[in-house]
Amino acid sequence: MILKEVSVERFIFTCTGCGHAWVVDYDAQHVEDGHGHARDYFFRDGLPCPDPTGPGETICPQCGRPTVLAHLSARRASPAVTDKAPQGPGETPTPARTAARAKAPLLPGAQ
């Protein structure tokens, strides 16, 4: 598998039943298997989850119906994955920085 891109993708959801609308950010990994076949992996709050645009995958938090429309409204690619080689030597994290990163709470998926 070849990691092609890591991004944060913001989806706007609208329930076709009650009209409730909400926004959720997902971490996405876009990979290729080396034979031209692409696959996307989605994460919310650090946990793997299904593609939020899949039929019936997102449930309305207000009425519980699975009839939800999903619209990708914005995205931000990670600067760690680019088409160009990174500039500069990079930095080796200190043990204290690695420990602090492991202890830091995850950002919530909906902000």
Rank of each mutant, 00 (worst) to 15 (best):
M1N: 11
M1Y: 10
M1L: 12
I2S: 11
K4S: 12
K4C: 09
E5A: 15
E5D: 14
E9T: 15
E9R: 15
E9M: 11
I12L: 12
F13T: 10
T14P: 00
T14F: 00
T16H: 15
C18N: 04
C18R: 04
G19K: 05
G19C: 01
H20T: 14
H20R: 09
H20D: 10
A21N: 13
W22Y: 03
V23W: 12
D25I: 05
Y26D: 06
D27P: 01
A28V: 14
H30W: 03
H30F: 08
H30V: 02
E32M: 03
E32I: 09
E32N: 15
D33R: 07
G34Y: 01
G34M: 02
H35P: 00
H35F: 06
G36A: 01
G36N: 02
G36I: 01
H37E: 12
H37L: 04
H37A: 08
H37D: 10
R39W: 08
D40I: 01
D40L: 04
F42Q: 04
F42R: 05
R44Q: 09
R44H: 07
R44S: 11
R44T: 01
D45R: 00
D45H: 02
G46F: 00
G46K: 00
G46Q: 03
G46T: 01
G46P: 02
P48E: 11
P48T: 08
C49I: 03
P50Y: 07
P52I: 04
G54K: 08
G56E: 07
G56I: 03
E57G: 03
E57I: 00
T58V: 15
P61L: 08
P61F: 07
C63H: 07
G64C: 10
G64D: 08
G64Y: 02
G64K: 07
R65A: 13
P66E: 10
P66S: 13
P66N: 11
T67Y: 10
V68R: 09
V68E: 05
L69E: 15
L69Y: 08
A70T: 03
H71R: 11
L72D: 07
S73Q: 12
S73T: 06
A74P: 09
A74N: 11
A74S: 14
A74E: 14
R75Y: 14
A77E: 13
A77D: 15
P79H: 03
A80R: 09
V81D: 08
T82F: 00
T82L: 01
D83T: 11
D83N: 12
A85M: 06
P86G: 03
P86T: 02
P86L: 04
Q87I: 05
Q87H: 06
Q87N: 01
Q87R: 10
Q87V: 05
Q87T: 07
Q87L: 09
G88T: 04
G88S: 05
G88E: 09
G88L: 04
G88N: 07
G88R: 04
G90N: 06
E91Y: 05
T92W: 11
T92R: 15
T92H: 12
T92E: 15
P95E: 10
A96Y: 02
R97E: 15
T98A: 14
A99D: 14
A99P: 01
A100C: 05
A100N: 12
A100R: 12
A100Q: 12
R101L: 14
R101D: 15
A102P: 05
P105E: 09
P105A: 05
P105F: 06
L107D: 13
L107T: 13
P108C: 04
G109A: 15
G109D: 07
A110S: 13
A110V: 13
A110P: 00
Q111R: 12
